[in-house]
């Protein structure tokens, strides 16, 4: 019979790992498509190693103790990587809780002669592993949030591409609703590109904007004014009939802004502003 928790863990380390792995392999939530069994074994082994190393009789009841920092760090790392790999919260949770089951089973075998001690020790382990579960969950959610945050950032980046369509002509297709934050991004990237390329004309294409209300229109007017301040001309293109209707119904004055129905006509206008002409090659042959 073992009195010390640390001794118990050390003695049963290999057995504990085996029991735990078996439990995981037997579980319905095993995802061998996301992680191979070898990887799972390595990960579990690392965790059990550290658990055996850090838990002793003194700190088992103090889950906040600094001696668990390393263990929590490992747990966080595992949980974070599982969040990124696409494990569900349930699978990640059960991963930790199956460890609890494994420990309890071994405890039962070890302490079957002393029910009182078994109960007390189980309670201690229960508390410790619950706190492991909480940490795992917290970091799992944090990991997921990070993924969402990164995706949001990527979306806002890819949704504002400034394209140089011709020497001195930039085009910016706006896709999705324009809010204040996006207008800021659009404006900054457009103005920066104007400076970088020295372009004199910018075309804002709003065919991908689902609806134009007074706020969106105000954002557009702001962008156009800012471009003008930089010394470039701004053309708004891609105005659908419905948008033309709403703009007039809302009483928004776009008369100071050059507006075109399509990107093609805006480009044509930009060419004429730059005194460029586009000719069909065949007609040249005829002349010659």
């Amino acid at each position: 019979m073992t009195n010390s928790v640390a001794q118990f863990l050390k003695k049963n380390k290999a057995l504990l790992l085996d029991t735990w792995i078996q439990k995981q392999l037997a579980s319905d939530t095993l995802r061998d498509d996301l992680m191979t069994n070898d990887e799972l074994r390595l990960q579990s082994e690392e965790l059990v190693d550290l658990l055996v190393k850090s838990v002793n009789d003194n700190n088992i009841e103090q889950t906040e103790s600094a001696s668990f920092d390393e263990l929590f760090e490992l747990l966080s790392a595992i949980s974070m990587s599982r969040a990124r790999q696409g494990f569900s919260p349930r699978e990640t949770g059960l991963y930790i809780f199956s460890l609890k089951e494994a420990i309890f089973e071994l405890l039962q075998q070890d302490l079957s002669s002393d029910p009182l001690l078994l109960f007390k020790t189980s309670l201690k382990f229960n508390r410790l592993l619950d706190s492991f579960g909480v940490v795992t969950f917290e970091t799992f959610i944090k990991g997921r949030e990070e993924v969402i945050f990164r995706q949001t950032e990527e979306i806002s980046d890819i949704s504002t591409p400034v394209i140089q369509v011709w020497d001195g002509i930039l085009a910016l297709p706006i896709i999705g609703t324009l809010d204040s934050a996006r207008t800021q991004v659009v404006m900054e990237s457009l103005l920066q590109k104007i400076v970088d390329t020295g372009s004199g004309i910018a075309i804002l294409d709003i065919s991908g904007v689902p609806a134009v209300d007074s706020l969106v229109a105000q954002h557009l007017i702001k962008t156009v004014s800012a471009t003008r301040l930089m010394g470039a001309d701004c053309i708004i293109s891609g105005i659908r009939p419905e948008i033309a209707q709403t703009v007039v119904h809302l009483g928004i004055d776009l008369s100071n802004i050059i507006t075109k129905a399509s990107l093609a006509s805006a480009l044509k206008h930009a060419f004429s502003m730059n005194r460029l002409t586009v000719k069909r090659a065949e007609s040249e042959k005829k002349v010659l």
Binding site: M187, E188, L191, S225, A226, T227, R228, M230
Partner: peptide
């Protein structure tokens, strides 16, 4: 005019409509 300056002026509501601008 620097982009940041242009944005600031627009946010301040100054579109400098009487001024000509160039790059």
């Amino acid at each position: 005019m620097q982009p940041a300056v242009a944005i600031t002026l627009i946010e301040l509501g100054l579109s400098l409509s009487g001024v000509y601008t160039a790059l």
